[in-house]
C-alpha cells in the first residue's frame, strides 16, 4: 500500500515536472501548447473514467462546455473558489441526470444519445441569450491574471487532481466492479455489484472532471463563444486521445494527449493550414490498425519482453511442465 502510494506520488511528480521545466525556460509558444495539451489530457481522463463502466460517450463536449460556462457565469456572483466549485458541481448534477436517462441504453444507442445531448446543450445556449450570451459568447474571468506561466502551473495542478481521481477509480475499491459492469452487467448485478449506483457515480465523476477541463479552458483568454467549447471536436478528442494513449490507465490519456499534440504541431509546421487535420485523421487510422491497444499496450508488450519472468509466468511455466 505504502509502496504503491509512493509510486503514485512519483508519477504525479513526473507529470508535473515537464510543466515546471517549461515555466522555468519561459518559452511563450511552448507554454501555450502545453496548456492546451494538459486540458485535453484532463478531458480524456474524464472520458476514460466513464468508459471503464462500458459507457462509450460521444458527448463530453457538453460537460466541457457546461463546466466552462458554469464557472464563468457563477464566478462573478460567488467568487472564484465557490464559483468554480458550483460550476463543476453543476456538471456533476447534469451528468447524474444524463446518466439516469441513458442508464438502460445499450452500446450504439448510448453513444448516439450522448452525441445528441451535447448538440441539444449547444442549442440551449443559443436560445437563452439573456442568461448565457447566446451566440455572441461570454467573457469569463481569466485565470491567474492572464499570465501564461501561472496558468500552466494552475492547469498542471488540475491535471494532477484529475490523475488522482482517475487512480481512485483504478484502485482496489472500484476497479473490479467497474470492469465487471463493462464486461457483463447482468453477472455484475447478480453478484451484488450496485450497477446502477456505480454507473451513475462514474458519470457524475466523469462529468465533473470534464467540467474542470472546460473551466480551465474558458478561463484562458477571457472570451468564449459556444462554438469554442461545444464543437464536435471536443466530443471526438477525448476518445482519440484515450484510445491512442491506452485505455483504463491514468498515464495513457496523458501520454496520448502529449503525443497527439506533438504530431499535430509537427504536421502544422510541415503542411500548415487545415493540412494538420488530415494528419490527425490519418494518425487515428494508423494507430487503430497498428496499435489497437494504444501506446500503453505497446508499453506493456515492451515491458514484458525486458522484464525477468515474474510470479505469474513462473507459475504458468510450472503448470505447463
Amino acid at each position: 500500500m505504502n509502496r504503491s502510494l509512493l509510486t503514485r506520488l512519483g508519477l504525479y511528480a513526473a507529470i508535473a515536472a515537464p510543466s515546471m521545466l517549461l515555466v522555468a525556460t519561459d518559452q511563450p509558444f511552448l507554454i501555450q501548447v502545453a496548456i492546451g495539451t494538459l486540458i485535453s489530457a484532463i478531458l480524456a481522463l474524464a472520458w476514460d473514467i466513464l468508459s471503464r463502466t462500458g459507457q462509450v460517450s460521444l458527448g463530453h463536449a457538453a460537460f466541457f462546455g457546461i463546466g466552462g460556462y458554469g464557472s464563468a457565469l457563477l464566478t462573478p456572483v460567488l467568487g472564484p473558489v465557490l464559483g468554480w466549485a458550483a460550476g463543476i458541481l453543476l456538471c456533476g448534477l447534469v451528468a447524474v441526470l444524463l446518466g439516469a436517462v441513458t442508464l438502460r441504453l445499450r452500446r450504439l444507442y448510448f453513444t448516439i444519445a450522448t452525441l445528441s445531448f451535447s448538440l441539444s446543450i449547444q442549442v440551449l445556449i443559443l436560445v437563452t441569450p439573456g442568461l448565457t450570451g447566446g451566440s455572441t459568447g461570454i467573457m469569463p474571468p481569466v485565470i491567474a491574471g492572464g499570465s501564461p506561466p501561472l496558468q500552466l502551473l494552475f492547469v498542471t495542478g488540475c491535471l494532477v487532481v484529475a490523475a488522482g481521481v482517475s487512480d481512485v477509480f483504478l484502485g482496489r475499491r472500484f476497479r473490479p466492479a467497474f470492469f465487471m459492469i463493462r464486461n457483463n452487467p447482468e453477472l455484475a448485478a447478480a453478484s451484488g455489484v450496485p450497477v446502477t449506483r456505480l454507473k451513475i457515480l462514474a458519470f457524475a465523476v466523469s462529468g465533473m472532471v470534464a467540467g474542470l477541463a472546460g473551466s480551465c479552458y474558458c478561463g484562458l483568454y477571457g472570451y468564449v463563444i459556444p462554438d469554442d467549447v461545444f464543437t464536435t471536436n471536443w466530443n471526438v478528442l477525448p476518445l482519440a486521445v484515450t484510445v491512442l494513449g491506452g485505455m483504463d490507465t491514468t498515464l495513457g490519456p496523458i501520454v496520448g494527449a502529449v503525443v497527439l499534440r506533438l504530431l499535430e504541431e509537427l504536421a502544422r509546421q510541415a503542411v500548415g493550414g487545415v493540412g494538420y487535420q488530415v494528419v490527425y485523421g490519418a494518425v487515428i487510422i494508423l494507430f487503430i490498425v497498428g496499435l489497437p491497444e494504444g501506446l500503453a499496450g505497446l508499453g506493456r508488450v515492451v515491458l514484458r519482453r525486458f522484464r525477468p519472468p515474474g510470479e505469474g509466468t513462473r507459475i504458468k511455466a510450472r503448470l505447463a511442465s
Binding site: S51, V56, V236, L239, A240, Y280, G281, I285
Partner: peptide, 14 residues
Amino acid sequence: EHNQLLATLGLSIL
C-alpha cells in the same frame, strides 16, 4: 466498440 467508433471518425476527419 470504441476503436470501431474512433476508426470511422478518423476516416471521416481524413
